[in-house]
Amino acid sequence: MTDDGLWSIGELAARAGVTVKTVRHYSDRGLLPEAARSGGGHRRYGPQALDRLRLIRSLRSLDLGVPEVRRVIERDEALEEVLAARLREVGSQLAVLRWREAALRLVQDCAAGERAERLRLLGAVSLPPDSGALVRFWRRVLPARLPARLVTTVLDSVVPPPPADPTPPQVLAFARLHGLVSDPRLDSGEFRPAPPLPAGEYRPTVLYEGLAEAYALAARGVDEALGEGEALDCFVAAYAAALGTADTPAFRRRLVGLLARSDGPVVHRYWKLAAGLFAPGEPVLGALHHHLSVALHAQVGSRAG
């Protein structure tokens, strides 16, 4: 230390436990205050530089970049913003690692004969995957005239978010689900999902609003058997109102056929794969629809007998 209480760059580095190169780097970036220069032009630093250097080291230990460190130094309140942004980045990185670990286990633990298919499925999706392909699938299935608010409600109910910490079976289910909704055969032929009712013959808004109420009743377990109760009546009433007809025994028999037509192999496969991707205890719309359809079929069959 010089007579004026200042340190050379080497002395500052020794006190801070870093290299001279590190001190010079931060000085050159304008992050360390220089108290003075010696007669020979050498840098001199005071206690403020040591405090600043220790702060920089602490921030860098949190993996903050130099631009973020500068923001914190220049504006104290920026620390909260920088930390929040870094936490979001770390969360995204952890999600990638969790999905990658589950995917590795999925391939490692399967039989040798299954690996080629699983690798092909995994190669078609990002890790973690996004739900874009699933959303596009349902937008093709939903009626074009459905109000945006109802489209959003339906999409929230039918598109499972990628689990934050997936199991290998969930990774496989999501990859298969992605493959299903991305199949080019969806654009033509019998593989294309059928609309819920004949196009142009019903009011989509009336149908989907009524179905939402029926699914809510079924999810709350208003009538556990579903065969005779409010949820099933509401379910049938939604279709009847959308078609502008009355809920009669004859209509219920007709509706069984309409439901069988719309619940094709693609939608059935979708719900089978998606079932394990929703949060535990979360009502799965596909399962509720299936239970109500089965209940209606059983009711019509028992009355016919």
Rank of each mutant, 00 (worst) to 15 (best):
L258G: 08
P67F: 14
R15A: 13
L172H: 02
R220M: 06
L258K: 10
R71T: 08
A78D: 15
I73T: 15
L121H: 02
G189F: 05
E230H: 01
P162W: 03
G91I: 07
F278Y: 09
R136N: 04
V23N: 09
V222R: 13
G276Y: 04
L127V: 03
S188E: 01
R15Q: 15
R44V: 02
D187P: 00
R37V: 06
A212L: 15
G132P: 08
T19A: 11
D247F: 03
G113S: 11
L32I: 06
V294I: 12
A238F: 07
L285A: 13
L50E: 10
R145D: 13
L211Y: 05
H268Y: 05
G257K: 05
P249K: 03
S182W: 02
R105K: 08
C234W: 03
E114I: 01
A242I: 06
S182L: 02
A78M: 13
D165F: 04
V20I: 12
V171G: 01
L296H: 03
R185T: 00
V151G: 04
R24F: 08
A275W: 08
G227P: 03
V135L: 06
A225C: 11
F235W: 09
L211D: 05
R37G: 03
Q93R: 13
P184W: 07
G5S: 05
R220D: 11
D63L: 11
L127A: 00
T245L: 09
R24A: 11
R15D: 10
R192L: 00
S302I: 09
V82E: 10
V171N: 01
A275G: 07
V66A: 11
P198Q: 02
E224H: 14
A35M: 01
R140W: 07
S188K: 00
A298K: 15
L121W: 07
H42Q: 15
L32N: 08
A240E: 09
W7N: 07
P166W: 09
L255R: 02
T167F: 06
G276N: 13
E68M: 04
V69N: 13
R88F: 04
P161Y: 01
F191S: 03
R253I: 01
K272G: 15
L62Y: 04
T22H: 07
L55T: 14
H290S: 10
L197Q: 04
C234P: 01
T153E: 12
F137H: 12
P195L: 03
E11Q: 14
E201D: 09
L134T: 06
P195T: 05
L155P: 10
G41I: 02
A102C: 00
E74I: 04
Y215G: 00
F251G: 06
D223Y: 04
R52I: 07
P47L: 14
L186D: 00
A240M: 07
K272Y: 10
R54M: 15
I73H: 06
Y208P: 02
A103N: 06
L288Y: 08
G257C: 10
L243E: 11
G200R: 07
R261N: 07
R176Y: 04
H42A: 13
H42Y: 13
V90P: 10
V159R: 11
T2Y: 14
L31C: 15
L288P: 00
R176H: 04
L172I: 00
L12P: 04
V90F: 11
A111Q: 12
A36R: 08
V294S: 15
A225V: 08
R269W: 05
A274H: 09
P168M: 03
V90R: 15
